[in-house]
Design a protein around this nucleic acid. Structure first.
Length: 274
DNA sequence: CGGTGGACCTGCTGGC
DNA sequence: TGCCAGCAGGTCCACC
């Protein structure tokens, strides 16, 4: 479900309301997520500690604990974190409940259970198996046209698949990959080894622009994405190709097409993306 | 080595 | 109404 802009929106909401709260208790209703939740690990290392910050790396949310440690969440395709007053009854797919005081609790809800929640230490995080291989943040200066060109050297995979490879760049999922390729006027099937510097510069700029615009709009909501306060995003109104099969291209009026790449839908304009 | 396809899960929609 | 295929915003791993 959430790509970088949605996770970043959730992070900002959590940061405002979670900091300085102590985790008083944890209730695990369903440990079988993408990765089995280690209940003992949470009880030992998370309960009794306070949240002092909320950061993001790729699509992971990192809750900094005092005196030490990080509580990590990944939302997979359908994960949500709800922050609010304790509710009387658990809803279906409410898998984890973090008690934060008499008036506050955090619920991890995830229909498809592709999400994750685990504890790690600050020291171990960079070498953690889930983090070790991750590429640069797309909004950082490390992510540039020359960097993309260098990483693409000798490869022949389609550029869309390349942009969704987390070892190349993190946070670019299926929606924003299509949107960035459209903005840069690059055809999703182009082989990366044959793209030249101007195209890499355009793609890099398009990725930064699209992600920043989506963050500014608080993410994309189709039917169900909401942030930790239950608010929908607005970026669905600014999507130019994703989900618009058959609609006219905003640049040249040619119908937007859909195709399958690596098992995922790609939306593009066959006339102005080359 | 690089690249693809399927696996993991549940729920919704549209066609017959 | 029922059933079934296809689809969904992510990630990993076995296999060519």
């Amino acid at each position: 479900m959430p790509e970088l802009p949605e996770v970043e929106t959730i992070r900002q909401g959590l940061l405002r309301r979670l900091v300085d709260h102590e985790i008083i208790g944890v209730r695990v209703r369903q440990p079988n997520l993408r990765e089995k939740v280690e209940v003992d690990m949470l009880l030992t290392n998370v309960v009794g500690r306070s949240i002092v910050g909320v950061e993001r790396r790729a699509k992971y949310l990192l809750m900094q604990l005092r005196p030490e440690g990080i509580l990590v969440f990944h939302l997979g395709m359908t994960g949500r974190l709800w922050l609010g007053k304790p509710v009387a009854q658990d809803a279906p797919h409410d898998h984890l409940v973090f008690h934060l005081g008499p008036d506050l609790e955090l619920r991890f809800h995830d229909t498809r259970r592709f999400g994750m929640c685990f504890y790690t230490t600050t020291k171990e995080l960079p070498e953690h198996p889930r983090f070790r291989h991750l590429g640069p943040e797309p909004l950082s200066p490390d992510f540039s046209g020359p960097y993309l060109e260098e990483r693409a050297r000798g490869l022949w995979k389609p550029v869309k698949n390349f942009l969704m490879d987390a070892s190349v760049v993190v946070g670019v999922g299926n929606i924003y990959a299509s949107e960035a390729l459209f903005a840069a006027r690059v055809h999703p099937k182009r082989e990366v080894g044959r793209l030249r510097r101007p195209q890499w510069d355009r793609l890099c700029g398009a990725i930064k622009d699209v992600l920043q615009a989506a963050i500014d709009a608080h993410g994309t909501s189709f039917s169900d994405y909401v942030d930790s306060d239950g608010r929908r995003g607005d970026f669905q109104n600014q999507l130019l190709v994703y989900g618009r099969e058959g609609a006219p291209c905003v640049r040249d009026g040619h119908p937007i097409r859909r195709m399958i790449q690596a098992g995922r839908s790609t939306f593009y304009c066959s006339r102005c993306q080359r």
